[in-house]
Amino acid sequence: MGNRGAAARILSVVAAAAIVASAVSGCTLLARPATGSTPTPTASAEPVPLPQQLPHTLVAGQTLATGRLAAVPHDPIDSPRATDPLTGEVRVVVDSALRIEVRVRPDHPVDVDPDNPGLELTSDRYDGGPAAVQDSRHPLGHGIGEKLQTDPDGELVMPVMPGTRQDLGDLSYFHSLVATVPGDERAVAAAALTWTTASPFPDLHPADGGAIPFARGTTIVDGGALTGYVPNPYDTLFAVSQRFGIRVVELIYLNPWLGYIDPQLKSGIAINLDPARR
């Protein structure tokens, strides 16, 4: 009888110790998961598309840029549009649907072909600024929804392709509007565009942190300032952006010619790292 009582007391002590241990460890001895149940997976956040990472601050009626389209020296070109090119005041504005329009108020009546106006936005510089690493061009009047129109007061209106160029967030990499003649890329008139929009990344200052895996290319330095980078084979946008202390969206912003849909680096083809050379 005494032995049975001692054994009962020992079992009680063991059980109590087990309960204390389970409470400390966070386990529950009595609860078991239901047969066949599986843990609910934690939903992972979908990556935000690059265009959506850019701040969009377009306001209807806003003037984004201004300039003056004036004749420029060029080799002789056998075309009336070369000897008497379109000139006038230029505005880049936001319409009521938040689309971007290029508007030209001609100095005098000029015959402009609505199907081929011979006007394009370009990264070419006519203001003495540093040249862009890569050329960017956008002919006006050729895309869907870009038909040349003329307002009742005579101002020429050329919408920029809806839903594409606007997605780049900031069109200020188009430094000029140029006029050409059919079959010839030489400018017969040009306007240096002065943009009034602020940069979406005002604190963007890439700095070289040194080569890392998948970012072992060569930097370009001009006057002691970092201006560009030449990728190596197998370099990736993410690794290169990490090397220079910026985000991928900022790297694409500096190089809009890469595009925001499946952008890819090309070995040996330099990219820009200087906001002034965008």
Score class of each variant (00 low, 15 high):
P162M: 11
L30E: 14
V92Q: 00
D222L: 07
I252A: 01
A215C: 12
S123M: 03
H56G: 14
W195E: 03
R277G: 13
L140K: 02
D115V: 15
V20Q: 05
T180V: 12
R9Q: 11
Q242H: 10
V249L: 11
P206K: 03
G2L: 14
P49E: 07
G5E: 13
R99V: 11
Q53A: 05
A187Q: 02
P117L: 06
T180E: 08
T57H: 08
H108D: 15
N116S: 14
W257H: 15
L258G: 05
P206Y: 01
V240P: 02
A31F: 13
A225D: 13
N3M: 14
T180K: 03
A192I: 06
L226W: 05
G209E: 06
V48M: 08
P231S: 11
M158T: 08
T122H: 02
R32S: 14
A31K: 09
D95Y: 00
A198L: 12
R105K: 13
T38K: 15
K266T: 15
D107P: 06
P106R: 01
V92A: 02
V14D: 10
L171M: 11
G224H: 09
L254E: 09
P85N: 05
D274F: 04
T196N: 10
I271E: 00
G163H: 03
Q134K: 04
P152W: 02
G169L: 04
G118Q: 02
E146W: 01
I252R: 01
P159Q: 05
G67F: 01
L148C: 10
Q149K: 10
A15H: 12
A71I: 06
G5C: 08
H205Q: 14
D113F: 01
S267H: 10
A225L: 14
L273W: 09
L54M: 11
I10R: 13
V48G: 05
D113I: 08
A211C: 05
Y229G: 09
V94W: 00
G141T: 08
I144W: 12
L148Y: 03
M161H: 12
T150I: 07
A31S: 15
L237A: 10
P39N: 13
W195P: 00
D113V: 09
V221Y: 04
C27W: 15
G118N: 03
D124L: 15
V112Q: 06
V230A: 02
S241I: 03
P33K: 11
R247I: 13
S172A: 13
A17T: 14
L98E: 10
V221G: 03
T227K: 02
L86S: 04
R91V: 10
I19L: 09
P109E: 15
G145F: 01
D75S: 14
R125P: 04
P152A: 08
W257A: 15
R137H: 08
V72Q: 02
T40V: 07
P39D: 11
L168D: 11
Y260W: 10
A187I: 09
S79C: 08
V48T: 13
G118M: 00
T236D: 07
G5Q: 13
S79V: 10
G169R: 04
P55K: 01
D113R: 04
L140A: 07
V94S: 01
D113S: 09
